[in-house]
Structures are given as structure tokens and as C-alpha cells.
Design a protein around this nucleic acid. Structure first.
Lengths: 152, 152
DNA sequence: GTTTGTGCAAACCCTTTGCAATTTG
DNA sequence: CAAATTGCAAAGGGTTTGCACAAAC
């Protein structure tokens, strides 16, 4: 069993204070592990139990969480940023499948990338630390719809 | 010899009008092929010869160019969007090496991805059309500096 | 001549910041 | 108690939009 991140210790290490707000926001993010939430999403979820916590605090907290590797920030191409809980501390080390039809984002966890990283390091004099991979395409559901429409 | 994209025809096909502004913006983008320019960069370059062309026109034109696959839009994680000329119509089919120290973006043209796409299609029921890959790491120059500093 | 595009400036909207009050250690 | 944090509201800043004029076909 993986021990959960100990927020308090982590914060103390970095000189941050352990506040109720930060704890609440952490709880929400952890509970929503696997989702790709906007700052507004997160704020609304937090506010449903703690209406006093404001947007500014959410943003400031997300910044710290990003720095502490607790979450990953995903820059959506067209919209605003999304955040995801970084369950195994594998920053940027996974892939996102983005359906160009419905916009849903899925994760891939396999490490297709290890070999490529080595190649890149050799050929481009570039030390790869992480990657944020976006694969654009069509998901199963949307493909089914397309086939349907083509048939009709 | 590859024939250059025929703007006028492309526009007519899609019902867009062929205006001087669009031509000028296209010329700049083509001339800057390989660069990753912000909308402001593009606007300034255009305005150096055509001071009357405004930011709004640049944005509107970039939107059309993106739709026509003439350029790729790269959503920088933290800053603003950048645009690159899509020389071989290979939308999203290349990689960006982003140095976390100096922020420079380099392209990789090799197709490390072909095999992976197949795997993804099979395992995740997701038809991959393109990818916009960002590899984060440290470029040669910044690595050299780091080593230097560690030594001092 | 009608439709589409342009330029300006104002509006948008996500995100950041200044400041006084509050909380943490 | 000193230093960090919060909440509000206002400011920032890249991008979009409304509108009157101009250009394209």
C-alpha cells in the first residue's frame, strides 16, 4: 500500500504553512484523481463545502501544488488550463488522448516513451526530463457515430 | 519541387476571400517557416511593411490558416499561443523539445510516433490522427551552464 | 450591389496582484 | 508576535467581438 502524501510534512519542508484551505483543496483534488479539472471546477467543488474559499486562494494553492509535484497543470490548446492529481508522482510522464470531436481527455499510462527519450537525448543533445503528450484523434464513441452517419 | 500552396484557390474552395492582408500574413509566416511565433510577433513583422494591418485581422487570419492547415497553433503551457508554418501539411505530426531553463523550442522531425499510434489505436479504441508532443528537458547549452555552476 | 473582411476600441475571461484583516507556528 | 495566508476586488494581458467603413467578386 502506497502511503498517501503527507501534506503537512511536505509543506513544512518547503516552508509553506499548513492551512485549512490548502487541505480542503488537496482533498478535492485527491478525490477527483483522474479528472482534468479547470480552476473554476475546483473552486466550485471546494466551495460546495467551504463557500468562503475564494478563486484567488485556489489559484495560489494550485501554483504551490504544481511546484510540489502534487498536481500536473495541463495547458489546454484552446481553452484554459486544467489540473490533474499526480497520483504516482509521474509528472508529465503520461499521455493524453484528446478526442477532436467530443473533447474528452483520456490518459494512457504505458511508457511508450522511454526508448524515444534515449534517442532524443543522443541525437538532439537534449536531456528529456518529462513529457506531456497529446495525441489527437477520434474516440471509440465518436467514431461509431461517424460510421453511423456515413451509413445513413 | 513541391508546388507552394496556392492561397487563392485554397481560399476560394472554402469560400474565403483573397485579401491583401491575408496574403501579407501568409508571406510572413512562410518566410518565418520553422519559427514559433506569437500573434504579436506576427503582427509586428507584418506591420513593419504594412502598418495598417491590425491585431484583430492577424488573429482572425490565423484562425483561418489554422483551419486550412496552413499553420499549427502551439499552446504554450504558461505563456500565450505560438504559431508555426505547416510546411509539409504534417499537422501536429512532429515533436517539440522545450527547454525548461531557457524556454527555447526545437523541432524534431523524426517519426518516433508511428508505432506508438498503432499501439494506442489497438489498446485504447482511439484513432490517432495527429500529435503535438512536448518533451520537457534541458538543452545542450543550459546543461553546459549547469555543469559549470556545479563545478564552481 | 451584396456579402465578406478590416480596423479600431471596447469587451471578454482566465489569471494575478495589492491590501487590510486573519491565521499559523 | 512576526511572517505567511486569505478574500475581495481591481488590474493584467492575450484574445475576441461589435460596428461602421472598405474591399472583393
Amino acid at each position: 500500500m502506497e502511503p498517501t502524501v503527507n501534506l503537512k510534512e511536505l509543506f513544512e519542508e518547503k516552508g509553506y504553512k499548513y492551512t485549512a484551505q490548502r487541505e480542503k483543496i488537496f482533498d478535492i483534488l485527491k478525490k477527483q484523481c483522474g479528472e482534468h479539472l479547470t480552476a473554476t471546477d475546483i473552486c466550485e467543488l471546494v466551495q460546495s463545502n467551504h463557500p468562503d474559499i475564494g478563486m484567488a486562494t485556489v489559484y495560489r494553492t494550485l501554483l504551490i501544488f504544481e511546484e510540489l509535484n502534487i498536481i500536473n497543470k495541463l495547458g489546454s490548446e484552446d481553452e484554459f488550463s486544467r489540473y490533474e492529481f499526480n497520483a504516482n508522482n509521474d509528472t508529465h510522464k503520461h499521455y493524453h488522448l484528446i478526442c477532436v470531436k467530443c473533447g474528452q481527455i483520456k490518459d494512457i499510462k504505458e511508457n511508450f516513451m522511454a526508448e524515444m527519450s534515449e534517442n532524443v537525448s543522443e541525437k538532439y543533445d537534449f536531456t528529456v526530463n518529462g513529457y506531456n503528450q497529446k495525441l489527437y484523434g477520434i474516440c471509440k464513441e465518436c467514431l461509431a457515430k461517424e460510421v453511423q452517419n456515413a451509413g445513413g
